[in-house]
Simulated scan of single mutants.
Amino acid sequence: MIREELFGKLQEIFRDIFDDETLEISDSTNSSDIDDWDSINHINLVVAIENEIHIKFSFDDLAALKNVGAMVDLMMVKMTK
């Protein structure tokens, strides 16, 4: 899967979790950019990504992420292992 395809899937997951069909994410999107991105929705987001993309994040993986772009990059690495 190429980065653009993965980003598209991630866009769908974000729209579903935050219940906003108009939500647009970018590489620089982070939790302060989305009003409803609280700890509960963060967990829901991670679980949805893990289930949809069939990868697993460690706590250290998640703690190091600063934005959506970093998440996509990490997902790309995990998918090649």
Rank of each mutant, 00 (worst) to 15 (best):
F14G: 02
D20E: 15
L74K: 12
V72T: 09
E24Y: 12
L62E: 05
A64I: 10
Q11Y: 08
I2F: 09
F57K: 03
V68F: 05
M71C: 12
G8N: 11
V77K: 15
M1Q: 14
K78S: 07
S28A: 15
M1G: 09
E24Q: 09
E21T: 14
S58C: 11
E21A: 07
K81D: 13
I34M: 06
S58T: 14
N30T: 06
N30I: 00
I34D: 00
L62N: 14
L74C: 09
I2W: 11
D20V: 05
H42V: 05
A70N: 12
S39P: 08
D60G: 14
F18P: 00
H42L: 08
L10I: 11
L62A: 07
K9D: 00
D27F: 13
I40R: 09
D16T: 14
I40Q: 12
S26W: 06
M1Y: 03
R3D: 06
E50Q: 13
D61I: 03
V68Q: 04
H54T: 11
T29V: 03
T29P: 04
V77G: 01
F59H: 12
E21N: 11
K56F: 14
M75R: 00
V77D: 13
E12L: 10
R3P: 02
E5T: 11
S58L: 15
Q11C: 10
A63W: 06
T29N: 03
L45R: 01
D27A: 15
